[in-house]
């Protein structure tokens, strides 16, 4: 087995554990490359079926092409979609001008937490990876959130031999991270190898492309000539710049992600 095959097999194992061991389960699909790979892996794990809904936490500030792409893929694949917004905060005028971390907390964290409670999810599959940033590097594959959706990162459970955290009090939920061991470049190599359709915002047009997708006001565009997946892989093999360098919320504070994620941010 090569490296990609081994990543694929282990992620499938994790998805199947989640489906077998947890109650109501959903997959957070952000339209980006990582959660699109997750969608692909779920199809493989369940032999063409997707036995749980796909969830999009829509901040209302997403890059417009993302929403169009989301609706098209969902209808092409016949996905059971849940789209959730923090309407109260939005109608009260919440936006990045109120402070990036405040905005992220309201439109992403709070929306996600409200959605989790509303549907009673016991497991949320999320496409985060260890190499994205420091607090994610310390994550577990099955990561518990308490009744207030908080992550007790100072006291994480042992995780060994594919035995994950599946015993927890009612009202808590588990964030399942099947892609934790993948690197950014693994994702692109897998997309190339499997020929997975992705949103074209990642491909360079007029010398610019998105490396990471998020909300329009807070997501930077990089200078790039990579107009195909193969060219992206080549570009990443030679870059020395961090993947989330273009994500403004990460730069707000040295521990911005740790603080956001402690409260339930993905």
């Amino acid at each position: 087995m090569n490296h990609l095959q081994s990543l694929e097999a282990d992620s499938i194992y994790i998805l199947r554990e989640a489906y077998s061991r947890l109650g109501r389960l959903g997959l957070l699909w952000s339209i980006g490359k990582d959660s699109t790979v997750l969608l692909w892996l779920a199809k493989k794990a369940f032999f063409g079926h997707c036995p749980f809904p796909f969830i999009h936490v829509d901040t209302g500030y997403k890059i417009p092409e993302m929403i169009a792409y989301r609706d098209k893929v969902a209808s092409d694949l016949g996905l059971e979609m849940i789209v959730w917004q923090n309407k109260v905060a939005l109608s009260a005028g919440m936006g990045p001008d109120k402070g990036r971390l405040i905005c992220c907390k309201a439109l992403k964290t709070d929306a996600l937490n409200a959605m989790t409670k509303h549907y009673g999810f016991e497991g949320l599959i999320v496409g985060v990876r260890r190499d994205e940033e420091g607090s994610r590097s310390k994550e577990r594959v099955f990561s518990e959130r308490n009744e207030d959706d908080e992550w007790d990162y100072t006291n994480q459970p042992p995780e060994l031999w594919g035995q994950f955290k599946t015993d927890f009090p009612k009202g808590h939920h588990i964030r399942v991270h099947p892609l934790l061991q993948w690197n950014e470049i693994d994702i692109w190599r897998y997309i190339l190898d499997q020929d997975i359709p992705i949103i074209d915002l990642y491909l360079a047009k007029n010398g610019r492309r998105y490396r990471s997708l998020g909300c329009a006001p807070c997501t930077g565009i990089i200078e790039s000539q990579a107009s195909s997946v193969a060219e992206i892989i080549d570009e990443l093999s030679h870059t020395n710049i961090a993947e989330r360098a273009g994500r403004a919320q990460d730069q707000e504070d040295s521990y911005a992600m740790q603080k956001l994620r402690k409260d339930g941010y993905m």
Binding site: M1, N2, L4, D193
Partner: peptide, 10 residues
Amino acid sequence: LLTPPSVRRK
């Protein structure tokens, strides 16, 4: 290194 990095086990 002759083996492409994508197929090297870690």
